[in-house]
Write a protein that binds this DNA or RNA. Structure first.
Lengths: 142, 142
DNA sequence: GTTATTGTTGACGTAAACGTAAACTTTACA
DNA sequence: TGTAAAGTTTACGTTTACGTCAACAATAAC
């Protein structure tokens, strides 16, 4: 296992060291391993998770709170899947799962709306770009 | 011409009255007409512009500064098109236009990247949703 | 083995994007 | 025409998401 220190992580993710520590502070990522002296040691998996978080934040426009929510949902479903929490509380699990499913449906609706609007903007920008090019060509013709 | 007051605008756009005034304050929208007594009077066009701004902010994740930049580009191109600024400074106009075109290309690249990542997330969420449904069905079978 | 890096924990600072409260004016309407 | 509702400005408050010291500890490099 090859360990990474916070500066490597920062370089690989594009986040700052401060941000990485901050994400740990607010519980967005689990506290990583530590060296004897107390220095944070990350794995490549940690880096991937951070990359994903960074992407999700940038692309989906999620706040860090929403991201926490979303990550909790994913993990909860994975946990259910792996049979963890074979708790006696069947009914509780069921209603929990239903809530997750509803939340996911909501996310999907949101995403689709956003993608649609993005495609709309893309069209618009392309049209603007075409107009700009046309103007430039007209000028060139003189 | 039928005038709208700020509360109507707020309701139509989904923004708050404070936000509408704030956008005016920072120059994101032009100051609207005023009544004799000094009350802001908006047109439907103002509402549409605000809706667009709101969409762009939400969907593109632009900061208000970036939005200003973007709006300036659109307007600048429209102005060029309509022959406004038939200024004697040909060369200046050209290089301005070139800059706009480059900025637009940059925006397009960014948009495409975002759309791609969004589609990726959509896949992922759909897969999560499928897993959740499967779990629910398994439970139902008991 | 001693410096130069790099890391750690506080703690306070800050920019963006509004929210909120106060004090006052303008409109709407019964 | 008087009063409630809606609007205005001014100004300070708040939340989010980090940035930026400072003071000290641990590693790395020579």
């Amino acid at each position: 296992m090859t360990w990474l220190k916070i500066d490597d992580v920062a370089k690989q993710t594009g986040l700052t060291k401060r941000t990485v520590r901050f994400y740990e502070e607010i519980g967005l990522i689990d506290p990583p391993q530590r060296s004897e002296g107390g220095i944070r040691l990350y794995t490549q998996a940690d880096v991937e998770r951070l990359k994903k978080i960074s992407d999700a934040k940038e692309v989906l426009g999620f706040s860090l709170q929403e991201l926490q929510q979303f990550l909790k949902i994913s993990e909860s479903i994975e946990r259910h899947r792996q049979g963890y929490r074979a708790s006696p509380d069947k009914t509780g699990q069921m209603s929990e799962l239903k809530q997750m499913a509803e939340a996911l449906e909501e996310q999907l609706r949101m995403l689709k709306r956003k993608i649609d609007k993005m495609l709309g903007f893309q069209q618009e920008i392309e049209s603007l770009y075409a107009k700009a090019m046309q103007l430039l060509e007209n000028d060139r013709a003189n």
